[in-house]
Design a protein around this nucleic acid. Structure first.
Length: 873
RNA sequence: GCGGACGUGGUGGAACGGUAGACACACAAGACUUAAAAUCUUGAGGGGGCAACCCCGUGCGGGUUCAAGUCCCGCCGUCCGCACCA
């Protein structure tokens, strides 16, 4: 018997080397086994892994290892989302090349991931900054271009003044750049776009098929796509007031039913009609400039009052040509939604009502809300924006709002204006096309040549890759490619005259929009090996952070469709890349501040006391420190714990186990020292238990004893139930519950150890072996150590998940609660298959039941076999 | 404003409509030890009672049900996402 403690940090590298030598995590692209593709969102090589990575990869690894044990051919790859601005910023600061910095980080982080003992197929490793990868992305771009799914246009874009680049709409959070945090400015630029809007309908409706995605993510995507059903209405402009060349105005509305409540029209400051009118009206021109200056930031929008300016133009009501309405320029009308023009019904829309009150415009109630008293109904300061019955609406009066919608639609579809229907039903989406041009160096070059003669010329596929030049300079802000002396000069592939290379690079979200497909065959000469992709895709379980709910996850869903439609998919009708998605919570930690207000790391403070009396002291100065909120680990707030330190001190298994226990995986977990200690104690406990069981004489391989005593039988039941429960909980990604079941089971083993019972030695061996196999997905090194202690010279990682014996999953006797009037008064242990009448007789005789019934007769007795008895008196 | 999630001991959290608080952390008492660590045992939702037991208890108020943390209705609160989207 070895009484030594298990030295995890010393033993873990040994087992990692064993796995490496045996190549057991290498996935084969052809197999008799069913496939399972497990993927965690690949990391950006920022320098070192953090606890968030540990949690993410630990979860994926448990699932991957479990599925391997269940007989699946598992693909579990890892790579690097390696392009991006931090590399460039680091290059500026440290005067190194972004590539040097990035590859050094990759080497460091790969070492860290290896020390976690992840069951990864490293033979498929890829880095998006490698030309081996991005050359294929350039090919994908060219094929999207030829299909019209990539295009160039001039438009207003989000400009990040800190990172000196354009950002997509999805990358602007609360008016700020998602990475730099800088307030985004609006600029008019010519940019490359991907036509994600062409897939709006499909991306939205297919959300319904993603039943293994979190509801939250689906709702967020649905809102982002933002479908609305309405009508495009063309209003004839009064000739006397309209600017030359403008005879009509098209607006978009979702409420044509409220058309008789209209009191004005409004257009965006950038609307062509506003611009035309402004030419002759300096005051209007000034107002439009003012609107444009008012940025797009949230702070601006919240404080901005509704403002408008009467253009003097009058428009004819589509249902009554004699009815003229004023056309305003209004600061709240967005040029890029609908047609940039609206009609306003103040009684039915709060914003229109505020505006009407301010400018003294009519407010005519047209919808009587359901249940409202018609005689007493008026609009004061609250618009009636719900459904109801039409009033003051001529031929619509008395109809429901939806009937009125149809009636107006029917009428205006038949009505002609300039030979065309004056109204058409129209579905509108909020989703804009994805602007992918970035004015930065460290990204995938857009394979385009600008020729004075031929215009925009794609780089011929044979000339790919368009490689980034190594000798760029980073000494000043702006795009190094743009100021490179030679790289951008080239010859036009068509006319062979001197031409200029496109110096924008692609948004790095393009890189991550197809990496999962590349993993299926990372050496394919084509971007995607259709056969390999068809075999492995879709990803069976994808795991990552919720922050990508509409960024990466929506882009990928689009990009996979777009490249499939341009000849690069699986060759089948597969449309969704990720069949199941799991969004894990963050890792949080307390924050600490020194007496003079500086953030302190957990290592820099000493904690004493507990509860409300807990105090922190800065170790270096011995000054009291302030204990702050528990928030996501961030370098800024210094509330970080370095995984390397934890692994060096406690071992990877301990870190993994702690990450998986207690908190449900979708929720945030609080990293605490005591929690790690608890996990560390459990590592030792498993080691001791297995050690003792292994010393127990009998072996599991020996023939099963013909008879088991009561204690031995009970232990066997526990073992098989635990096996079954842990399996189901890993399957459902309820790792915290699986962990709890393992704890429970180890308690059972501990309790059984000192007992003596026929067949107990054998049952203990069986239990110990099951325990080892149960923990193997979570604490794989410890499992190997224990497995060898049990006398095996095979690898635990290669063992099949043991089959639970169904006969042992149910007890032959069950204890059920007995209630009187719904309150538990006693309990009853009966044979599993006891008849209802037997149960009733036994229940009625129970002491607690007799007392509670107090001589009253039972009115009713409910018996749910194996569950409960409830006696109603 | 719109949408979503959540609300259970000191803490993290368990709980197919069926014994609420599994399991863990923290805590307390005890054993072992010269001592500490480690380990082991025991205790614990609140209140009452020597005890057997009894009452109350899953944010608040109603309802459905033999039975509600769980389902329904209405509030309150917290967190998250979107937001001048016509």
């Amino acid at each position: 018997m070895s009484s030594e403690r298990y030295n995890a940090p010393a033993r873990e590298p040994h087992w990692q080397a064993k796995w490496d030598q045996a190549h057991i995590f290498k996935a084969e692209n052809a197999s008799e086994k069913p496939k399972c593709y497990v993927l965690e969102m690949f990391p950006y090589p920022s320098g070192r892994i953090h606890m968030g990575h540990v949690r993410n990869y630990a979860m994926g690894d448990v699932f991957a290892r479990y599925k391997r044990a269940r007989g699946f051919n598992v693909l579990h790859p890892m790579g690097w989302d390696a392009f991006g601005m931090p590399a460039e910023n680091a290059a500026i600061e440290r005067k190194t090349h972004p590539g040097t910095w990035t590859y050094a980080n990759i080497a460091t982080m790969k070492g860290q991931l290896k020390s976690m003992g992840l069951s990864l197929d490293w033979s498929r490793e890829l880095a998006t900054c490698n030309a081996d990868y991005y050359q294929h992305q350039q090919k994908l771009f060219l094929d999207l271009l030829s299909k019209g799914l990539a295009y160039r246009k001039s438009s207003k874009v989000n400009w990040d003044p800190v990172d000196h680049t354009v950002l997509a709409n999805e990358q602007v959070i609360d008016g700020r750049g998602w990475r730099s945090g800088a307030l985004v400015e609006s600029r008019e630029l010519t940019q490359w776009f991907f036509k994600i809007s062409q897939y709006s309908d499909e991306l939205l409706s297919a959300l319904g098929t993603l039943d293994k995605w979190p509801e939250k993510v689906r709702v967020m995507q649905a809102n982002w796509i933002g479908r609305s059903e309405g009508m495009a209405l063309r209003w004839a402009l009064d000739e006397a007031t309209a600017p030359a060349g403008h005879s009509e105005l098209e607006i978009y509305t979702t409420r044509p039913d409220t058309l008789f409540g209209a009191s004005f029209l409004a257009v965006a400051a950038d609307h062509p009609l506003a611009k035309a009118a402004a030419e002759k009206d300096p005051k209007l021109a000034a107002f439009c400039d003012e609107c444009r200056r008012m940025g797009t930031s949230v702070a601006d929008l919240e404080t901005a009052e509704k403002q408008g300016f009467d253009t003097g133009i009058r428009a004819m009501h589509p249902l009554d040509k004699t009815w003229l309405l004023p056309v305003y320029v209004a600061n709240f009308v967005l040029m890029d939604y609908g047609t940039g023009a609206i009609f306003a019904c103040p009684s039915g829309d709060q914003r229109d009502l505020d505006f009407a009150r301010k400018y003294g415009l009519p407010v005519v109630p047209v919808v009587l809300p359901l249940g409202a008293d018609a005689a007493a109904f008026t609009i004061t300061n609250k618009a009636a924006d719900g459904d109801g019955t039409m009033i003051n609406s001529r031929f619509l009066d008395g109809m429901t709002t939806s009937a009125a919608f149809d009636a107006v639609a029917k009428k205006l579809e038949a009505e002609r204006l300039g030979g065309k229907p004056s109204g058409t039903r129209k579905v509108n989406f909020r989703l804009r096309d994805w602007g992918i041009s970035r004015q930065r160096y460290w990204g995938c070059p857009i394979p385009i040549i600008h020729c004075k003669t031929c215009g925009i010329v794609p780089v011929p596929a044979a000339d790919l890759p368009v490689k980034l030049p190594d000798d760029a300079t980073f000494d000043k802000p702006g795009n190094p490619l743009d100021r490179h002396p030679t790289w951008k000069n080239c010859t036009c592939p068509k006319c062979k005259k001197p031409a200029r290379r496109e110096t924008d690079t692609m948004d790095t979200f393009v890189d991550s929009s197809w990496y999962y497909a590349r993993f299926t065959n990372p050496t394919s000469p084509t971007p995607i090996d259709a056969k390999a992709a068809a075999y492995w895709l879709p990803v069976d379980q994808y795991i990552g952070g919720i922050e990508h709910a509409i960024l990466h996850l929506l882009y990928s869903r689009f990009f996979f469709r777009a490249i499939s439609d341009s000849g690069h998919g699986t060759g089948s009708n597969m449309r969704e890349p990720f069949s199941a998605l799991f969004t894990q919570g963050m890792v949080t930690h307390e924050t600490y501040k020194s007496h003079d207000g500086k953030w302190l790391t957990p290592a820099e403070v000493r904690i004493e006391g507990e509860g409300a009396a807990r105090t922190a002291t800065e170790i270096a100065t011995n000054q009291p420190a302030e204990i702050g909120d528990i928030i996501k680990m961030s370098k800024n707030k210094k509330n970080v714990v370095d995984p390397d330190d934890i692994i060096a001190h406690w071992g990877a298994d301990c870190a993994r186990w702690f990450m998986l226990s207690d908190s449900p995986p979708e929720r945030d977990v609080i990293w605490t020292e005591s929690g790690v200690q608890g996990a560390g104690r459990f590592v030792q406990r498993v080691w001791r238990l297995v050690d003792e069981a292994a010393n127990n004489g009998s072996t599991f391989d020996a023939a099963m004893p013909p008879v088991f005593g009561v204690e031995a039988m009970a232990l066997r039941r526990s073992a098989h139930k635990a096996l079954d429960g842990v399996a189901r909980n890993i399957e459902g990604l309820r790792f915290n519950v699986a962990v709890a079941q393992i704890y429970e089971f180890t308690n059972e083993i501990s309790a059984a150890l000192p007992k003596s019972s026929e067949g107990l030695d054998w049952a203990l061996r069986e239990s110990a072996q099951f325990l080892v196999q149960m923990i193997a997905p979570m604490m794989p090194h410890l499992a190997e150590e224990c497995w060898s202690r049990l006398g095996y010279n095979t690898l635990a990682a290669n063992q099949a998940w043991p089959q639970a014996d169904p006969a042992l999953l149910v007890d032959d006797r069950v204890t059920i609660a007995v209630q009187v009037n719904g309150k538990r008064r006693d309990e009853l242990t009966v044979a599993l298959n006891a008849s209802k009448s037997d149960i009733e007789v036994a229940a009625m005789a129970l002491e607690g039941v007799v007392r509670a019934m107090d001589g009253r007769p039972a009115k009713k007795v409910i018996i749910v076999p194996q569950r409960i008895v409830n006696i109603v008196v």
